[in-house]
Design a binder for these strands. Structure first.
Lengths: 342, 342
DNA sequence: AGCTACAATGTAATAGCTTACATTTCGCCA
DNA sequence: TGGCGAAATGTAAGCTATTACATTGTAGCT
């Protein structure tokens, strides 16, 4: 089935068959409004007949754009990114752009490499998650005038575009709410905060809430691990065994929280009577698990869609940075209640 | 930050700076062995100094390949595909290929269009899900000599490559097991079977099991809907209200099954005492929901990884079709038991 | 020294499309 | 009907890297 590449029809073949110039064919394909109805139908017929498809490389080189947009996400396996990317891609398809994706597995070096690969592959613009990144990488993108949009976070750098939400504020709000119920012995299970600005901001937001309540930040014990149900389970198990007085476990995301709930339940803790657990993201698991998880709802799909629009705008014409902060909302569900002794 | 595109260094700039011809520079980059040590280091220094990156379009046009592999999946929001694609992409990155992805939302027309778009974008090969597809589309790919691999299913056409599993057999096995427990009043909630071969094969596999057990296929009532927790819930609610004698609901995938479990529970049915429910895929939700779901485990990550390897092989040299059938396994968990009267 | 053979390098054709600019066509009005 | 402006179309110059083929350089041999 895979013979030698037969040579494909070119613009010129189409032009000849339709009896017009190559310029006209090109216009038919790219700016149909500039061509008369009669000509257009002749050309389209020729295109159909020859099953012509423009050669990508030639188009890229002549137009100096590829219509390819890159997205680099930490992982496809967390549904928050899957959702955002799905919406992102749908917006791109609608305007005939194409998405290339890669996941970095939360590894900054890997991400830096992927960024260069994507630029080398002709990406017209990039979607990046979070703000933590080597300055060299930003310099590289700026030198090459590759526009990028940061998602899932808000950049403090006023020259950068983002479509995100305030991890810090959302976390503060959630934790303040939890503290108000009376919790004074708190554990926080986070992703590694050194290279993950979203995780870090959430932790700092929680500390902020504690301080704002006039409490000692040391009532919160921080554990760091990678995001996964298993890690949530093992870390929570460890916490409940070493500091059984803990009444609230704050999880950096819902995936960890689901693991924590399972761990707590298999240790015989009743949630929320004996122990409260909260998460972040509001993924599907949050409502399927019992009790349902109190968490922060993040508009992942909207973020993907809006980021796509922003990025497309940036690739079209020079533009001041686009900075959009989306709202989050605390979802109060069954996993949070007052501590047992309250 | 996004000024007008400054023009990037070209091969010629590098050649000039290094005091050699463009051919030599090109050779340095692509076939270093053909260039003397002295020249090579001069050239590499120039490349570094100018931060030269080859222009993608020019390279694609001159070399007639892009190193881009396309993947078209029904949706990113079902974690089975997210997982498969994640593994697929990792394998590609490892050999310096790049993945472009799009989702078709289970729409055949949309998929056909996306296939053409991807080929137009220079994809060297394609990953496709399932076998149901307009013959024109296959003809198009064959004409253009674009290799493709089918995943999540096994193609009966011996000229096609696939890395999949036997939906029919897996379903037969699961349902046979369920029937053996005594169920005689069965509902099946499936995706639309007209355009979805995986869904269809699962339904047919279930019927096969019923016939094999010497029972009348009419004991199974089929509903068709789109895959989603909500649809699982509403369809199951409907079934339980109109045919309350149903003792087993077979769901076309786990997402529907989770909805069905929720529906059943909110109607006061005890699972598995009053009602059994089974799914297909073995996603994370299956073990988080209570009771845990009896379902068919599918090796999604392996499938993605192996499909990538197969596709890369096919793009490299003409090759007979690669046909790999992966094993599935029935996961027996709490949601399946004998019917109440048994 | 003179020759061969091969390694290293250079020259220039080529790939297919877009687009600025030039030219032609057309409709419409005086 | 002549003339004008706008619409439609054509011409041809790029865009950048690869590569077949031509040329030059060099080592090794007699």
């Amino acid at each position: 089935m895979n013979g030698p590449k037969r040579s494909l029809p070119t613009l010129e073949d189409v032009a000849q068959r339709a009896g017009v110039s190559t310029a006209t064919v090109s216009r038919c394909l790219n700016e149909p409004a500039k061509v008369s109805e009669a000509t257009r139908s002749k050309v389209m017929a020729a295109v159909e007949a020859l099953k012509y498809t423009p050669n990508f490389g030639a188009r890229a080189i002549a137009a100096n754009r590829t219509g390819i947009i890159g997205a680099i996400i930490p992982t496809m396996e967390n549904s928050i990114f899957a959702r955002g990317i799905e919406a992102f891609q749908k917006s791109l398809v609608a305007v005939n752009a194409t998405m290339i994706v890669a996941s970095s597995a939360y590894d900054p070096d890997q991400e830096a490499k992927l960024i260069r690969t994507m630029v080398g592959r002709g990406a017209d613009g990039l979607l990046l998650i979070g703000t933590d990144r080597d300055p060299d990488t930003y310099a590289y993108l700026n030198e090459r005038n590759i526009p990028y949009v940061i998602a899932w976070a808000c950049s403090p750098d006023p020259t950068q575009s983002y479509v995100g939400f305030d991890n810090h504020a959302a976390s503060t709000k959630l934790v303040a709410h939890a503290i108000a119920q009376g919790h004074r012995s708190i554990a926080y299970i986070s992703a590694k905060i050194a290279t993950n600005d979203r995780a870090r901001e959430r932790v700092l937001g929680a500390l902020r809430a504690i301080k704002d309540a006039g409490l000692n930040p040391e009532i919160m014990h921080l554990s760091q691990t990678d995001y996964s149900v298993d890690n949530g389970r093992s870390t929570a198990t460890n916490i409940l065994q070493t500091t059984p007085e803990t009444t609230l476990i704050i999880c950096g995301n819902d995936v960890l929280a689901v693991g924590a709930i399972q761990a707590a339940q298999s240790l015989g803790r009743k949630i929320p009577d004996d122990l409260s657990i909260v998460g972040f993201d509001d993924i599907e698991l949050a409502t399927v698990i019992h009790p349902a998880l109190t968490t922060v709802h993040v508009p992942h799909s909207d973020m993907g869609r809006i980021a796509a629009e922003a990025l497309l705008t940036l690739t079209k014409t020079p533009q001041p940075p686009i900075r959009i902060r989306l709202k989050t909302r605390t979802m109060e569900r069954g996993s949070l209640g007052p501590p047992p002794t309250a």
